[in-house]
Structures are given as C-alpha cells and as structure tokens.
Simulated assay, not measured.
Amino acid sequence: MPPADPIASTGTAVPATADVNAAAGSDARLNAGSLVGTSTGADADLGVDAGASGHGEDTMDLRLPDELLALIADGSSDSHGSRRPDEDTAQPSVSIAATREASVPSVPSVPSVPSVVPAEDDLLDRVADWGPTDTPVGLFQLVPVRVERDLPLISRWMNDPAAAAFWELSGPQNVTEDHVLAQLAGDGRSVPCIGVLDGTPMSYWEIYRADLDPLARHYPARPHDTGLHLLVGAVTDRGRGLGGLLLRSVADLVLVRRPSCARVIAEPDIRNIPSIAAFLTAGFRFSAEVDLPDKRAVLMVRDRHLRHLL
C-alpha cells in the first residue's frame, strides 16, 4: 500500500484514504507514510494497543464480519496504500463552490475510473462526481487518474528521493504504471486521483475503502472506513503547510460526500514526524501505534463526530 503520510521524513509535506495496517500489496502501501509519498496497507495481526489512544472504541470488536474477511481474502493492496488485485489481499462544512464551474481548467473532466462494480453500487460514492471544494489555499478538486494523461507526471513525482523512500515506486515509468493500473483494474475499492489546486495538478491521492482492504485485519475496522494516501508532487509545494490544509479539506470532503462513512484513517510511518504533524494539523487524532509487515505505523483517525473540535 502507498504511504498515508502527507509529509516526507525530510520534513516536507506529501501523500494522494482507526488503527491502520495493510497486507503485502497493502503492506507496500503501509510502508509509505509521507506526504511526499503516501499510501496504505499492512499485514499484522491487530498489533494495536487498546490503551494507546485512550479511545476504547478503536480497539473493541476486533472480529471482522465473515463477508469482509472474504472480500479481504480476495482483495489486495500495494505497499503504499494502493490495492493490487493480484496480491493478498456531521457533515463538515466544506464549502463546495456552487457558483463556480465543476471542471478544472487545466485538467479536463474525465470519466469515472473503470470498475466492475455497477455505478449504483460504487464502493466510494463516485469520487469523480465529488466536484471542487474551497480550501484556505484555493479551489481544490480530486480528478480520477487517466493513465495516458497523468502517468508521466505521477512517475516523475515518484522518482523524487523524498517520495521514493516511502512509496517505493521509483524507477522506469512502468513501475508506477503497474501500481496505478492495478487500482484502475480493481473493483472500485481504491481510486487514484490527481489533486488539482486552482487549475494546477500538484498532488497524487489514493482514496480507498479501508474496511475492505487487507489493512482491516490489523485494526477494528468499521463499515465504510475510508483511507487516504497523499503525495505532494512538486518540491516547491512542500514545507509550506499545504499537506495539513489539503488533508483536512479532503478528509472533510470524504465525510460530506460519503454520509455512511464515520471515520477517515491513515497510517504514516512512525518515523515520519513531519507527516504525523500534518495529520494532526488536519484534525486527525493519534489513535495507536501499529506493527505492520514493513514498518511501525501510527494509526491516525479523523472522526465525523469530532471534526468540529479538532
């Protein structure tokens, strides 16, 4: 799974998703945990300390429903939060710019990510239809990835050393392509997106169903838990606090557009202090430390009922 951390261990902000840990594919994602490189995933048998966060509800009812276990067994996750099919596998006041056009000038509107799930059963409530939202730093929109248009840009971002350390997707363009195509070819439980700020593509996101991900094996998942992975692409956009601001806006957008979702989660590497700081700034709470297959992570949670307090 890709990292969920918005900031790289170097202190820069980065990526584009209760206690979090994901499996092999999920595991890779879990390895990433910086805003510069973000994803989810992890394989560990519920390595969560019930008292770590002081939120008892996060560590109770650890047995997952049989149907979710079945889905997880069939699912997959990439080391940085992206699910790979071939691997083991209240409403915040986010103001939607009603008077502005829903399309972003520099990124033409694109069709929804291909999915074998009927539109009416979309697992993430049609991310492509969420539209733009006002943020303290400008008009922001998540635009589902279109490989032929976005792959060169994403690959360039992944080859930045700060991102590569967490996402592990550096190298030839086909490395990133395989990672993205695995999500696009899945059942819709993970949607890779380009984050467009005031018309300029500037970040990579993965919005995914944490409760249907192998990560759910490692924390007391609840139905519709939604995970975030974020990578702030351009070096010039890092270290300016953008990670925390955008994480808050996107987490609240998830809660607005997904009324069935009560929590937004992330699992940054515990060593990535800047990333953890960005999530805290974004209103996430430190829930617990979790041992994942390839890293020790921090389970960050943004609760619907606490969104106005944090």
Rank of each mutant, 00 (worst) to 15 (best):
136 P>D: 06
79 S>M: 14
77 S>K: 08
142 L>M: 06
166 F>D: 13
86 D>G: 07
147 V>A: 02
155 S>I: 11
79 S>D: 14
58 D>A: 09
71 L>E: 14
74 D>W: 03
88 D>F: 13
107 V>C: 06
66 D>F: 12
81 G>I: 07
124 L>M: 10
125 D>V: 07
106 S>G: 13
100 R>N: 09
170 S>T: 04
74 D>Q: 11
105 P>A: 12
152 P>W: 06
140 F>R: 01
94 V>G: 06
117 V>W: 03
143 V>F: 05
152 P>C: 03
78 D>Q: 09
62 L>V: 08
111 P>F: 12
139 L>T: 15
154 I>Y: 10
89 T>G: 13
156 R>F: 05
134 D>I: 15
173 Q>G: 03
131 G>W: 07
170 S>I: 02
159 N>Y: 08
110 V>M: 05
169 L>A: 03
118 P>V: 00
124 L>G: 00
121 D>W: 10
167 W>I: 14
110 V>H: 04
101 E>H: 15
153 L>P: 01
167 W>A: 13
122 D>C: 02
134 D>T: 12
151 L>D: 07
114 P>N: 06
146 R>H: 08
165 A>K: 15
65 P>C: 03
89 T>E: 12
129 D>L: 08
70 A>M: 01
164 A>C: 07
83 R>W: 10
133 T>W: 13
